[in-house]
């Protein structure tokens, strides 16, 4: 029986690493961007377990929210001008 915080850190850490792996090996850029956002989201749960609620809020709002949208805006501009962003 391991303690709940330890289990949470192990589980979400493995999930973050798996999402990072998906971001590295996938063929399409949108999937990679979404996976990178997921890495940030799992990392924000790890911050919460490590008793850092301020950092968890910032990471969830900025790291996984706004950054993903910046990527999608740039990908949209590139696609509209006829590039393939694969």
């Amino acid at each position: 029986m391991i303690a709940l915080p330890l289990a949470a850190v192990i589980g979400f850490g493995l999930a973050a690493i798996a999402a990072a792996f998906v971001a590295l090996v996938t063929r399409t850029t949108p999937v990679a961007v979404i996976a990178a956002g997921l890495v940030s989201l799992f990392a924000s749960v790890i911050f919460l377990v490590l008793a850092a609620p301020d950092v968890a809020m910032t990471e969830a709002a900025i790291g996984s929210g706004l950054t993903t949208f910046l990527f999608f805006y740039v990908m949209g501009r590139i696609r509209r001008e006829g590039g393939n962003d694969q």
Partner: peptide
Amino acid sequence: TPGGGFQGGAVLASGML
């Protein structure tokens, strides 16, 4: 409470988004 200018600013920006 947890939170502050940077987090609140990000929430404002998400409203603008």
